[in-house]
Computed example of a mutant assay.
Amino acid sequence: MTDTTIPTAEDTWVEQGQEVSSPEELREYVAQLRAAVSHMHTGLGRAAYGALKGHPWLETPPGELLNVPEILRQHLEMTITPAGTTAKDATFRQSLAALLVALDAVDRATLTVWLAQTAAQDPDRTA
């Protein structure tokens, strides 16, 4: 895959964000953001797995498929660089792990926004 095959996105997040004028519109905007971030998180995890294993996610036998937390734990997160790992490989893995963790943090933050909005409307509502 080259840079020319990656579709470019318009800056719709900015356009949508500047039109929000009510708590309900904000709630909808945050829900859309959360869905987009969730898709990015899953897609990046699968792409990282494919790059590290040398074959696409879709060609992985069902018994070998990992979810994103397992990919992070088994292939990306490092507190100590494994023996024989090049600096280039360690940096690549660490940067992928950091990006996946950041996407997870955004997902958690959007959930917090939803909970705050819900609690502001009805503190006793079941979450």
Rank of each mutant, 00 (worst) to 15 (best):
M1K: 04
M1S: 09
T4C: 06
T5C: 14
T5F: 15
I6K: 11
P7L: 07
T8H: 14
T8Q: 14
T12M: 02
T12E: 01
T12G: 09
W13F: 12
V14H: 07
V14C: 03
E19Q: 11
S22H: 00
S22D: 07
P23C: 01
E25V: 05
Y29L: 08
V30P: 13
A31H: 01
A35W: 04
A36W: 11
V37H: 02
V37M: 08
M40C: 13
H41G: 02
H41R: 06
G43L: 10
G45M: 01
A48Y: 08
G50H: 05
P56N: 03
P61K: 10
G63T: 05
G63W: 05
L66R: 11
N67A: 12
V68H: 14
P69D: 15
P69R: 01
L72R: 15
R73I: 01
R73Y: 03
Q74A: 02
Q74N: 04
H75R: 11
L76N: 04
L76T: 03
E77G: 00
E77C: 02
M78K: 01
T79M: 11
I80C: 04
T81R: 13
P82G: 06
A83K: 03
A83W: 02
T85M: 00
T85H: 01
T86H: 05
T86I: 01
K88D: 03
D89W: 00
A90G: 02
Q94I: 05
Q94G: 09
S95G: 08
L96D: 02
A98W: 00
L99A: 05
L99K: 08
D104N: 07
R108K: 12
A109W: 10
T110A: 13
T112C: 12
W114R: 06
A116V: 07
T118F: 11
A120P: 08
A120Q: 13
Q121F: 05
D122H: 08
D122M: 06
R125L: 07
R125K: 04
A127H: 13
